[in-house]
């Protein structure tokens, strides 16, 4: 009997109830603990119970009380295609590495921009701009590896945290691009230049937006 065939024996509508345990098929139809193919309202007949045994209040000796049917045929465990990527991700954890670049550099850049606004020393502004170029560019690998993690570890399940991260990361990218474009259009004229104000406001706004994205990342690492 193949693994797929066992699924048919789900104990529903008078069908026999079979379960798989460590590559063997057992008939639990007669067991009072498997009425209509359900065990304790949680486990369904037709499935593989191997991984659940460590959670059970009994050990595998209970299977001595039910009928052995056969071994599973051609039972090459189907490897989850994501497992390879999951292992690579676990080993190199790229997202936590990459998020620190925009976090560090953009905060630093805004600090330089503040210094410029206070002291009017152009070197501060230039430093802020270079930090924007580097920090803004580094948002992309952070976002890409974040999407990878979402796909590999969370099966792209869209919960509130992931919605927040996707929406506000997109907003962050727009702000960074807007800031760079406005800075280029400002033509190095700071005082009374509308483009320069757009640049400065976009740059400053990027900080709370990025912080909110990071806060949601923290909620994944340290759930409420």
């Amino acid at each position: 009997m193949k693994r797929e065939d066992v699924k048919e024996f789900n104990g529903e509508n008078g069908k026999p109830a079979y379960i798989i345990f460590k590559g063997k098929v057992y008939d639990v139809t007669e067991s009072r603990l498997w009425k209509n193919g359900k065990h304790m309202g949680r486990h369904k007949a037709g499935g593989d119970m191997t991984d659940f045994i460590s959670m059970a209040p009994h050990d595998e000796k209970v299977l001595d009380k039910v009928k052995y049917v056969c071994d599973i045929e051609e039972d090459i465990p189907k490897e989850d295609p994501k497992e390879k990527w999951r292992n690579l991700y676990r080993r190199y954890h790229p997202h936590p590495i990459f998020i620190h670049f925009p976090m560090g550099v953009l905060y630093f850049g805004v600090f330089m921009l503040f210094l410029f606004l206070i002291f009017k020393i152009s070197e501060f502004e230039r430093t802020a701009y270079y930090a924007l170029l580097f920090g803004g560019t580094s948002v992309f690998p952070a976002v890409i590896t974040g999407l990878m993690s979402w796909y590999i570890n969370y099966d792209r399940t869209l919960t509130e945290i992931f919605k927040n991260k996707i929406i506000y990361s997109s907003f962050l990218i727009l702000l960074v691009i807007n800031a760079v474009v406005a800075r280029v259009l400002s033509g190095n004229q700071e005082e009374g230049n509308l483009w320069f104000y757009i640049y400065a406001i976009s740059y400053l706004l990027a900080i709370p937006v990025m912080t909110f994205v990071a806060y949601n990342g923290g909620r994944i690492t340290w759930p409420d």
């Binding site: 969370y154 399940t157 919960t159 945290i161 994944i220 759930p223």
Partner: peptide, 8 residues
């Protein structure tokens, strides 16, 4: 779903 998902 979020609680369970983050735990896996």
């Amino acid at each position: 779903i979020q609680i369970v998902l983050l735990r896996i």
